[in-house]
Nucleic acid binder design. Structure first.
Lengths: 232, 232
DNA sequence: CGTGGCCTTGATAAAGTTCAAGAGCCGTGG
DNA sequence: CCACGGCTCTTGAACTTTATCAAGGCCACG
């Protein structure tokens, strides 16, 4: 257990949420953390479950999503290593508002609610980090809502491609980080529609698509489509 | 100034965000708060503005919304007395992600960013209150995203009417608290569509509508429409 | 080599938006 | 007191976007 705890402690220092904390806090965090692994496709929690703690993704990919009664899916967020999720319910004391599922083999650290709240009370910088993360997430949601209701699918796709490109230093050669299936859900549409729009964009010379590899051919054109994005 | 500050101090104690704080903190909050008033229709801040502080609505109504380049509007949130807004940018240090406008004559307290952050560092319960509020807001957004992408307009309207009814002790006689114009934006649609759907619901015997007064005639029917709401 | 997952393509249908016109309401000012 | 202009709201018809249904292609894995 000693060994394991040391590993966890090292991992905790690499998590942005825990940046700038005093050494003592790292020890305490490592003390309360539970180490869990999930296979790709495995459910981590379900909408309506009690919010009993905070999750931080150490490795892998996790999606958080809503399901309609007919089984249609809307992805709210796809998380990568280092990101926390499931916080909303920890602080508001409400059940999880959505489902979470590992997209690939994933490892998470789980911090039980009560102990985590104690730590926050002790160190304001942890609280501020958490506030910053929630604020950013709120902003992300605002953008998602905007996209869903103000832009049509080509605009959302264009915005997503440009976003991907930015992540990668503005390269024109992109590689989708998820199945198109999954991307459709993230964009609030279905695979058929996504497929059609990709081929239409290719026909119009905006992009060149081959499987998961997509090359931006006309950045200006994409920006025009995505324009709702940058309103002053 | 002394007088005014005393008034502000009293108002601050009535704000949920500041619940459970020590007396000292109330004084300090009152010390940094700026008192501002806005006429109905007046812009409070615009998307892209620097996030220089936190707003708390003392009286009136404020809407926060996004605008598409074509001028279509999506309301993200309508705030009533006691609610804070504009927090997202305070903690993440980013510009405001949306516009805010007073819907009616409104008074707000404005807390400049740096001073407010200082107070948070001093008292964890303020931080926890803030975290709880942001968490709840996140949940609201998740529900909004779900509605927009998983339900069609009649479902969203039904959900909204049932929500209104719940607010008012399950009465069947509702009075819309905003113009239909505005409601359309909140539901992510346009006035024409809202109008059509209201009359269709009336034709189907679900409701009885007269101007802003709407009577629920068939609660079960509405619940069926809104069903995506209550998934396990 | 066959089965199942993922992706594409086509035909069709449904929902919502746009455009246009007009009805109802209200406050102002003649 | 009534007429006017300006709102919000309603209604109809054409059009656009997207979903749905159905079929077939591609590819990896057993």
């Amino acid at each position: 257990m000693e060994r394991q705890s040391a590993v966890i402690r090292r991992e905790i220092t690499a998590i942005p949420l825990f940046n700038g904390l005093p050494q003592r806090q790292y020890d305490q965090l490592a003390g309360i953390a539970l180490d869990r692994s999930y296979a790709g496709g495995q459910r981590i929690f379900s909408e309506g479950d009690e919010g009993i703690g905070l999750y931080v993704l150490v490795s892998g990919t996790v999606k958080v999503y809503k399901l309609s009664p007919e089984g249609k899916e809307q992805t709210l967020h796809v998380f990568g290593a280092g990101e926390p999720f499931g916080e909303a319910s920890v602080f508001a004391g409400q059940p999880f508002p959505a489902h979470a599922e590992a997209l690939a083999e994933s490892r998470v650290l789980f911090f039980p609610r009560a102990a985590f709240v104690e730590l926050i009370k002790e160190d304001p910088s942890l609280a501020l980090n958490m506030l910053a993360i929630l604020s950013r997430r709120l902003r992300t949601f605002a953008a998602l809502v905007e996209d869903l209701s103000l832009k049509e699918v080509p605009g959302r796709l264009a915005a997503y491609l440009l976003y991907l490109s930015e992540q990668r230093d503005l390269t024109d050669d992109l590689i989708l980080d998820m199945a198109k299936n999954q991307l459709a859900s993230l964009l609030g549409t279905i695979p058929e529609t996504l497929s059609r729009i990709l081929s239409r964009m290719a026909r119009q010379g905006l992009i060149h698509a081959a499987g998961r590899r997509i090359k931006i051919m006309d950045r200006r054109g994409l920006e025009a489509l995505a324009q709702a994005e940058r309103r002053l």
